[in-house]
């Protein structure tokens, strides 16, 4: 509880235990620095995703070390690897099961565009079935590139109008999450 001696003003200085800021800024700050990834490890890129999570590159420095294999607990789906047509519906269903707000990183050439696999079995970019926020280039991208992608996403999240979007639009509601 705020004590009487501090005066409330439009000021972002920390005064006692009160911080005054925009709700958007506070929400986005919290969201962007505790991104829990859902590692959608499909192919080779998953190995670099694991490398990014382990000792040398240490994704924990950016608050995203909490890999959750349950989509319900995740904020950002990192699609790491080739999305085939057989796998695509599963990717979409897992995306549908994630709670809003949710973001998607397409990691690597295959997830972004189909990459070197221009063939009958490979979906030419995961953005055909889920909305993608950040594309990371490379085949596979180095862990640094993934970290950069993550920072880009943090920047994007920081600019979102979160308070207005608190009411979930109908299009983002998950129709398939019944099972």
């Amino acid at each position: 509880m705020a004590e009487q001696k501090h005066e409330l003003a439009y000021d972002t200085k920390i005064e006692g235990d009160i911080v005054v800021t925009r709700a958007d800024a506070a929400i986005n700050w919290i969201r962007s620095h505790s991104m829990w990834p859902m590692p959608m490890g499909l192919a080779c890129c998953a190995i670099e995703l694991m490398a990014a999570a382990s000792s040398r590159f240490d994704i924990a420095r950016f608050g995203a070390e909490v890999m959750r294999f349950s989509p319900r607990q995740a904020d950002v789906m990192i699609v790491a690897g080739t999305v085939t047509y057989k796998m695509a519906p599963a990717v979409r269903r897992i995306y549908d099961q994630m709670a809003a707000p949710r973001w998607v990183i397409a990691m690597g050439a295959c997830a972004s565009t189909g990459g070197m696999y221009r063939s009958y079995a490979v979906m030419q970019g995961v953005d055909r079935i889920v909305p993608v926020d950040v594309y990371v280039s490379g085949c596979p991208p180095r862990p640094e590139a993934l970290l950069d992608g993550l920072l880009k996403l943090q920047k994007k999240v920081a600019g979102e109008r979160s308070v207005q979007q608190l009411r979930v639009p109908e299009s983002a509601q998950a129709p398939h999450s019944s099972l």
Binding site: P89, S119, V122, Q124
Partner: peptide, 25 residues
Amino acid sequence: LAGWETELPDREVAEQTGAKVIGAP
């Protein structure tokens, strides 16, 4: 190699996203 157009394996997802199995460019 590019393949021929056909339906996605999952009808529900195909309806929702409008995605199809298409010939690779």
